[in-house]
């Protein structure tokens, strides 16, 4: 619950910074509605495992335990951000977080390569690629999945089906029973999981991780959820009806998990509110920190190209 609330708070701060024109450039892509996937998946991973994130990657970066101060510093284009202001593909190699996303399917084959390196170097570490329903139609994803099957790679293909590829509804582009159903064709186990339930996601990913560590190869997981906000923050979603959006909000993972924890007397509404206040204070501190950080110096434009 904490991870999901933190994700939402960090992303709200990012979105607000754009809407108040504190930051400019490409508008933020929020994971609102998808928090349970990042939180559940990262809870199933261990130290030394790798994740490859998408253009909607802030949720997973937060869930993997990266420092909101340095995430926000990057999003504010500051030199103390994770990538020194070079891109907002927040990366922390010490935590196995590789930020990608400029080119929609590109992280998936590369995650496969990271899995190959783990296998060839004899570690028991796994590599997990996040990608979207839209990305799942790219050739690069099909090729990476087929290769992972052929070489029994310790790879988890985690498709976040948030129902939309910008304005295109998943069912307009996907004519099979599900995205995970394609796994059979690749020769991989395929699972559909409720992506609004962090525990269900955690269980599915934990099973895939155990298989990968034991040498059993890759798993294809489709986590289904709803994209609650626009593709990017300025997108008001005119292509979705009011009714559709209203019913989508009923699948808000924070709402659902909050209710469940209350029902099961694990976390009361008051305790959740207190938790959220602490998180908001932490994020406000991270924003204040980011604002005070220096911009990169001009000569830094020419650094970091070559190893």
């Amino acid at each position: 619950m904490r991870a999901m609330l933190l994700i939402r708070a960090v992303e709200k701060a990012w979105g607000d910074a754009y809407l108040t024109e504190e930051i400019t450039g490409i508008p933020p892509s929020l994971s609102t509605g998808q928090e349970a996937i990042a939180a559940g998946a990262c809870a199933a991973l261990g130290d030394g495992d790798f994740i490859f994130t998408t253009h909607r990657g802030q949720a997973a970066q937060v869930a993997r335990g990266l420092d909101p101060k340095r995430i926000l510093a990057e999003l504010y284009c500051r030199r103390t951000g994770y990538n020194k202001g070079k891109s907002y593909h927040v990366t922390d190699m010490t935590r196995g977080v590789v930020g990608m996303g400029g080119i929609v399917p590109a992280q998936v084959p590369i995650a496969g390569g990271m899995a190959l390196a783990q296998k060839m170097r004899g570690t028991d570490r796994v590599s997990l690629a996040f990608f979207g329903d839209g990305a799942s139609n790219e050739g690069a994803v099909h090729e990476a999945a087929a290769l992972a099957a052929m070489w029994t790679l310790p790879l988890i293909l985690l498709c976040e089906n948030n129902r939309y590829c910008i304005t295109q509804r998943d069912t307009d582009a996907l004519k099979g029973p599900s995205i995970a159903a394609r796994a059979a064709g690749y020769g991989l186990p395929g699972v559909v999981v409720d992506g609004t339930d962090p525990l269900a996601v955690q269980a599915a990913v934990a099973e895939a991780v155990a298989r990968a560590r034991a040498g059993g190869g890759a798993t294809f997981i489709e986590a289904q959820c709803e994209r609650l906000t626009g593709h990017l923050i300025h997108d008001t979603q005119p292509y979705r009806s009011r009714e559709e959006l209203e019913s989508a909000w009923k699948h808000c993972p924070i709402l659902l998990f909050g209710e469940r924890l209350e029902r099961e007397r694990i976390l009361s509404a008051d305790e959740r509110a207190r938790m959220n206040r602490e998180i908001e204070a932490e994020v406000a501190g991270a924003v204040a920190h980011a604002r005070t950080q220096p911009y990169p110096a001009i000569h830094e434009a020419y650094e970091d190209l070559w190893a």
Partner: peptide, 14 residues
Amino acid sequence: PNVPVPFAPCLQDE
């Protein structure tokens, strides 16, 4: 001058 166009506006303009 043969570097990727950086994200930070100040570097981009450079």
